[in-house]
Amino acid sequence: MPSPSPSARSRLQDWLPRLVLAPSFALVLVFVYGFIVWTGVISMTNSRILPVYNWVGLDAYARLFAQPNWWMALKNLAIFGSLYITICIALGLFLAILLDQKIRIEGFLRPIYLYPMALSFVVTGTAWKWFLNPGMGFQNTMRQWGWEGFTFDWLVRPDMAIYTVAIAGIWQASGFVMAMFLAGLRGIDSEMLNAATVDGASSWTIYRRIVIPLLRPAFLSAVIVLAHMAIKSYDLVIALTGGGPGNATELPSTFMYSYTFTRSQMAVGSASAMIMLMGIAAIMVPYLYSELREGRK
């Protein structure tokens, strides 16, 4: 900080940094936190097509949790989220460990695992919708190749469609998780591992007992990032299944959108948005808090 001085010019210099930051911070305060409060207020009214401000307390929340559709969305999020997180992590870790074995074509393989992350979810959904099309896609191809009884029609089966969302999501994000783990593996001190090897530990033991525990930060980051992406997933479902068949792949995000903008139940939609926000906050706030504290010098 420059030392304070009586001249106007240097007083301006003192205030300039704050003046430069102020517009951005004000925008965030108003458009993020102010709007969250606004949405919270709407969720406690009986708004339908447009916001009206008749206070009805938690009525919209009661109606939200009385909706079978909302429970469907929560159940789907639980299925999708748990598969998405665990399989992305398992696959990502597996690929990272394989790639870390002095693979000569690593530079060629890595971008192949990662490119889906550059695509928009709408593109991913479109591609997988076509690939999983029972009539003309993968199922048909297997049958043409002679496997007459081959069936893979999850996309159109209400009980299985949510798993296709998980498949497409995993395809998109697992390469990214691989990269996170690979970065973690590269950061491990090889001296320690060589010592363990000299002691006669098998490579399986070394991974299980030493390497994987050392990757704890990468695991934590991966879980946080994936959980947060799972809760926010919207475009992928819209492009892949449109929330269907019926409401079979409804997620909180699609529920919020349709109740707010097409079903004229704005209060219920707002309530669902607030529940989503609470879910994210429960994951992110402790994480960011601990990260910020660690960064403290």
Binding site: V28, F31, Y33, I36, P51, M274, M276, L292
Partner: peptide, 16 residues
């Protein structure tokens, strides 16, 4: 506050 703003579900600001 700016950091947490990165992670909010945008559904919570859509209507306003």
């Amino acid at each position: 506050l700016m950091l947490f703003a990165c992670f909010i579900p945008f559904q919570s600001v859509l209507i306003p």
